[in-house]
């Protein structure tokens, strides 16, 4: 029994949703002037890893290994965001709570942790619905699939360029390159 085409559309929609989260991060960076911190950049990488795992489904068909890649990337990204949540979980008297702006009452790293947890839960649901495509399968992606993959690739390139502009060819500190 083959996988339903709707599942591939949902897979690409998830890729698009995660890409839009990265677009939102760019809005905070350039629209609101909040320079991303090192842990924020690492969380972006975690999201790119999840998108890459989903793009494997787009290009090569559903496989359990691809789901494992998605869960692995979500766990890595989730540990980055949970680390940042724990760093700012205890407010200091007289200082603003958390780091950066809040959206709907929660900071971006808290939202990132929720996104990574949702990714793991969603992958568990996907694993119940999909069937492994035979080895060597190369799918013909639809226009929507190809567009989301290209969009995510361009976002990855934009992140590389933005990080190079921010930190140069070195490590990033709180607001730009390390001294």
């Amino acid at each position: 029994m083959e996988n339903r085409p709707l599942l591939y559309t949902v897979n690409s929609a998830c890729m698009l949703g995660l890409s839009l989260v990265l677009v939102g991060a760019f809005y905070f960076q350039y629209g609101l002037g909040e320079t991303p911190c090192p842990l924020c950049l690492l969380q972006r990488m975690g999201m790119l890893g999840v998108i890459l795992g989903l793009s494997l489904n787009t290009a090569f068909g559903f496989r359990r290994e691809h789901a494992a890649v998605v869960i692995g990337a979500a766990l890595v990204g989730g540990s980055f965001s949970v680390r940042q949540v724990l760093l700012h979980i205890a407010p200091v008297e007289g200082e603003p709570t958390g780091y950066g702006s809040a959206v709907l009452g929660m900071h971006l790293y808290t939202w990132a942790a929720i996104v990574f947890l949702t990714t793991i839960a969603g992958t568990a649901v996907f694993l119940c619905l999909i069937r492994d495509e035979p080895a060597g399968t190369v799918r013909r992606p639809t226009l929507f699939d190809r567009s989301t993959l290209l969009f995510a690739t361009l976002l990855c390139l934009s992140n590389a360029l933005a990080t190079f502009v921010e930190c140069g060819a070195g490590a990033c500190c709180e607001n730009g390159p390390c001294p």
Binding site: P38, G49, S55, A59, L161, G168, C172
Partner: peptide
Amino acid sequence: PMAFLFLSYLATFACVIRGRRSAALAGL
């Protein structure tokens, strides 16, 4: 360098687009 890390993800995207599954998995 942080920018280099993003470039490694970009190279993995290129492997997916070119249909090289093993290289994509190794890159990721």
